[in-house]
Computed example of a mutant assay.
Amino acid sequence: MLVFIDRLSDVCGKLAAAMFFVVGGIITYEVVARYVFIAPTIWAEELSRFIQIWATYLGAAYVLRHRHLIAIDLLTGRLGAGGRLATEVIGLLFIAGFCLVAIVYGTGIVVESVRLGRATATMLSVPQWMTESAIPLGMGLLFLQCLAELLRRLAGRLPGSAGEPDGI
């Protein structure tokens, strides 16, 4: 199961990276269209924001899996292996708890948007659930990766062993 979660996080992370690349292309296109050809688009800003939101949430689990979260290790660097393990477990539990809250409330918001038929107040009038659903899905992926990382820590696979980098 851990291998499946890791692979899912990797696939979503690579998809997120491609999506950020697409956002850069869309913004470049808009700048050229607007300032060179004096012909701005009606879709570039909203589409790039939509893709960026999805990429951010899809990439969160990948970032945790590869241990690239921002970490302040002034204190934890001075702790022994047991202290580092304890702080990592506590950190992962906080992340997992936040994910659960975001999943519950995010799902409620998506359901309400579908029920009410909410759409963006732009010329494209995109249904809001399409953007809002990134939150429960992305937080669900991050929650699964948290569980995988917690199981690894509790099974004794400490950071720095078996080629794993230090820190969450």
Rank of each mutant, 00 (worst) to 15 (best):
E46V: 05
Y57D: 03
V22W: 04
V22C: 10
A17V: 10
A55P: 03
A33G: 14
L74F: 12
I72C: 12
V32S: 06
Y29I: 11
V32K: 10
I51C: 03
A39N: 15
W43F: 11
W43R: 11
T41I: 12
A39W: 08
S48D: 09
K14F: 15
I26V: 11
K14G: 13
I26H: 02
A60L: 14
I70K: 03
L15A: 15
D10K: 14
V63Y: 06
S48P: 04
H68K: 14
Y29G: 08
A18W: 10
L15S: 09
L47V: 15
A71Y: 14
A16R: 00
H66F: 15
Y62F: 14
F37K: 01
A44T: 04
A61W: 00
F50E: 01
G25Q: 07
A18L: 14
V63A: 13
D10F: 13
L69R: 09
F21W: 06
R65L: 08
V32M: 10
I42A: 09
V32Y: 11
A71M: 13
R49C: 03
V36F: 14
F37I: 06
A33P: 02
I72L: 14
I38D: 15
A18Q: 08
V22N: 05
G25L: 14
V23W: 08
G25D: 05
A44M: 10
R34I: 03
L74A: 13
I38E: 15
E30A: 02
A60I: 06
C12V: 07
V22G: 03
E45I: 09
W54F: 05
E45N: 14
F50V: 03
R67G: 05
W54H: 13
V22L: 11
I72Y: 13
I38T: 15
L64S: 03
L64G: 00
A17N: 00
W43T: 05
I42H: 11
L58T: 07
L15M: 11
P40V: 12
I51P: 02
Y35I: 08
I53M: 12
G24K: 08
G13D: 01
F50G: 00
A44S: 12
I53S: 05
R49M: 07
F50Q: 04
A44I: 09
L58D: 00
V31F: 14
S9V: 06
L69T: 13
E45C: 12
D10C: 11
I26G: 04
V31W: 14
L69E: 13
A39S: 15
